[in-house]
Design a protein around this nucleic acid. Structure first.
Lengths: 346, 346
DNA sequence: TGGCGCATCCAAAGCGCTTTGGAATTGATT
DNA sequence: AATCAATTCCAAAGCGCTTTGGATGCGCCA
């Protein structure tokens, strides 16, 4: 059932039917009712390809997932972000198109998306310290919102981010207040912008208390369970072992906990752990009371926010309007993984 | 840069340029070279909307993610499946469109996808015991491949599945061979088809050894860490506690391990654990040697396979061709989580 | 009565591509 | 020299929609 058939069945022109369905004023209310009714009865849905071609709007948003040799991008937070963004898209009548491309093809993938006209805008995931995708998208004039920020980037752009620096600063202060002095940072890969911000927060908290950071306590890797485990096991076996760990993800924190228990220590008593928690739907930080003390910020909510921002930018359709931005604060929730450190008991 | 401009620049008709680019034979090889060259120089990409409209093919595959009140669908395996399928799509020139819809809107979402013409086919995720999506898709004549199977479904359809029954049967036999007699099944939700198949496998292994299944040892829930933990803690505190656990996912297995350790027991010595392992890229079962003994089957590989199958079905474009199917066998890998049970030491 | 504005509808052009049904040129065949 | 079959190209129709630029009919006022 297409417009032509529907309009013939109604004895109206395609113009009128189209206008009736799209809410234009120049059509009699009674006619509109008739049209709407017939459309519903015949289960009519306008063909999006034709509509897109005619209007120039794809009614779709792109997400490009670079498929690294490493696996960090097919990462657990991605599914939740997508779920949040997807909710917003579908209630706004937009589709979401994903492209999984190898790292090398990423730039071409963005150009293609633009040239082929498959999407009206894109969300940029996992920005690096100086991310080349931002100037690229700026050049090809494809509307975009960055999930995160890119410190090295000079041109203005729209973004939505968690205040990672502040979150880790507060988490570090929290541990310091408990009397911990040797706090290990089990960070993510530090070519990722968020990881650097987190380290900055950690360092500034230490500095404010006049504590010289120990570089042996600062690690940076892809955030897997194994990484958390290996790192914690190694650090715990050293002579002056840390009394607290600050980890960048719940998954790594699980590894840290495993190493702690394996060493015959008890988490929350002998060793404290604070982790960042993205509130992933399938990996909750405990049920009622949190297992880990955590800096919590829902990545799904971030997905919603980023999608809304992008849609509003596209709706404005003004390339000269100033970029938008939004900084989400993480909440510091106290769980069972933290307790007083050595300085407190002195 | 569109076809018209490009053809004007070349002094050729749109027809010829189009044919040159699409590899049709009725064009001089030298002309073709000229065209290809100009296309590359001007970075020409045909507008997919127009192309789709003209050809009637969307060059896109849909994945519908129902957003349950429960969270099981935004599940960790989804990201990896998508990554695998995505690889196949992009190398075949297809786009992947995701729709996140609430449970109630799922049927309408499929109808819309068909009517709006946004996709050429869909992949059905997480089939239930008697899944209504299969007859629906059959009715609306939208090509599809099911990841998994639906036992209650009578009409033929294409699917790709892991031999879940066999995998759990083998895992159970393995534990029985080790001398375990009280084996707990920490299964997924049993309205999901795969979960029922796994239980069947578990039961048939027990039966073959003449062991009466103890229903108190069989649990079924959404596969979270917390579920594994709670279940194991409860079962381990019972008078005749199980000596082995068979879990449906690595995430639940982590919870089981936590409960084991918390009870002061040692996994692999006091209590054995076998889990199913989907080989998720961010949650590996150990690095070199597996932590858990596991029935292993890459969900990413399943994504590739399902995508290939769907594309081949679409390419055949014959609605009467017989449905395809593929059954993947899981491999049983031995890790450090299993050891002899009480019957062996008697 | 003629003219004006308003409400309501329509025909047709266009979005950028593919594809049908020739047309023109060439070389080989009779 | 005339015919024929390839070869190579093109004009135009069509995919299903939106949107421009009227057309039509109506009541209303002068």
């Amino acid at each position: 059932m297409n417009l032509k058939e529907l309009s013939e069945k109604l004895g109206l022109s395609q113009t009128t039917v189209s206008r009736a369905l799209n809410g234009y004023p120049e059509v009699n209310e009674e006619t509109r009712r008739r049209v709407m009714d017939a459309a519903r009865r015949h289960n009519y849905r306008p063909n999006m390809r034709a509509k897109s071609l005619a209007t120039g709007r794809a009614m779709a948003i792109g997400h490009i997932i670079p498929l690294s040799t490493k696996h960090e991008i097919v990462n657990p937070i991605f599914a939740d972000f997508i779920a949040g963004a997807g909710e917003v898209y579908s209630s706004a009548g937009y589709d979401m198109v994903l492209s999984v491309v190898s790292d090398a093809d990423e730039a071409r993938a963005y150009r293609d998306l633009k040239a082929k006209g498959t999407v009206d805008g894109v969300i940029v995931h996992g920005p690096k310290l100086d991310d080349q995708r931002i100037p690229l998208l700026h050049d090809i004039a494809l509307p975009f919102v960055v999930h995160g920020r890119s410190t090295g980037c000079t041109i203005p752009y729209s973004w939505l981010d968690v205040n990672n620096r502040r979150a880790f600063e507060r988490a570090t202060e929290f541990l310091l207040d408990l009397g911990h002095r040797r706090i290990a940072l089990v960070n993510g890969l530090e070519y990722m912008d968020f990881a650097v911000r987190r380290r900055t927060g950690y360092l500034s908290a230490l500095e404010r208390r006049g504590i010289t950071p120990d570089h042996r306590l600062m690690r940076s890797e892809e955030m897997t369970e194994g990484y958390g485990y290996r790192t914690a096991r190694e650090l715990l076996s050293a002579p002056d072992r840390p009394t607290a760990f600050l980890t960048a993800s719940l998954i790594s924190a699980l590894g840290v906990r495993r190493a702690i228990e394996e060493a015959g220590l008890r988490m929350g008593r002998d060793v404290s752990v604070v982790t960042h928690d993205d509130e992933l739907s399938y990996l909750r930080n405990g049920e009622d009371v949190p297992i880990f003390t955590a800096t919590r910020s829902s990545v799904r909510e971030a997905g919603r926010g980023a999608a809304e921002m992008l849609l509003s930018i596209i709706a404005a359709a003004n390339p000269d309007s100033p970029p938008q931005s939004r900084l989400l604060e993480a909440t510091l929730v106290v769980g069972m993984s933290t307790g007083p450190g050595p300085a407190a008991s002195q």
